[in-house]
Amino acid sequence: MQPVLSISRRHRIAALRETVAGMEHALPGATPAYLPFGLPEIDRHLPGWGLTCGALHEVIAATHGDRAASFGFVVALTAGSLAVRRGPAMLIAARRCFADFGEPYGHGLRRLGLDVGRLVLVETRLDKDALWAMEEALRPEVAAAAIAGAVEGDLDLAMSRRLNLAAAGSGAPFILLRPPAMAGTSAAATRWRVTTAPAARDRFGTFARCRWNLTLERCRNGRPGHWLIEWDHVAHRFGLAEILADCAPSAGAGQDSRRLAG
């Protein structure tokens, strides 16, 4: 019982800290706020209990096939940020980023819990323009709730430093989606690698929640880690997948029962 209590107390302190940070945000020289995952297992690995707002965070798909999953993770983080912060969300991408698997779909974004009405899409022809647009969006007067970017090419260290600096000025979480197999050095505060995983299912065997294998590869002032997480789009909350408690029937059983029912 004791650890549970302490966790909830820590949560409360974290929430209070966030509220205070939000109040102080308008003042110059404010301390950075955090975007907590709400999972002590993950937040423990990050400095200051959560993703640092006002810093660059990289998300990389493990393979080409995981690009949808990595974009889903970016959308989930954006949705989480929109739920707790004021302002619009920006999604800035070079056109090539969505050439393979299609464009973000409004109803699909909504299904992940994103407030589509507050989303502004920026589509550019080149990576260069997209990076410029991200810097513009990171100006403090825009006061965005979250900024998500996607580039298709490589990002050099100097550019990532620039973006990180711009993000520090903005105070909004800045999540950059990068293509698989691009893992050079960068000034990002964290780097996440996402692999898709079989979805969480309810007891009738139907789809309940998305699941992703999440690897925290690099983290400034934190520790790397690996988790299997799921995104609850209704509560805007991440959860750790409990494999053992998953009561979904296996594929074969599902087929059988359906046939019986038919």
Partner: peptide, 16 residues
């Protein structure tokens, strides 16, 4: 979008 309509299964990325 503010209107709360139940949404069906819809993909995140839709092919052109």
């Amino acid at each position: 979008w503010a209107i709360d309509v139940p949404c069906n299964t819809r993909p995140l990325l839709l092919l052109p």
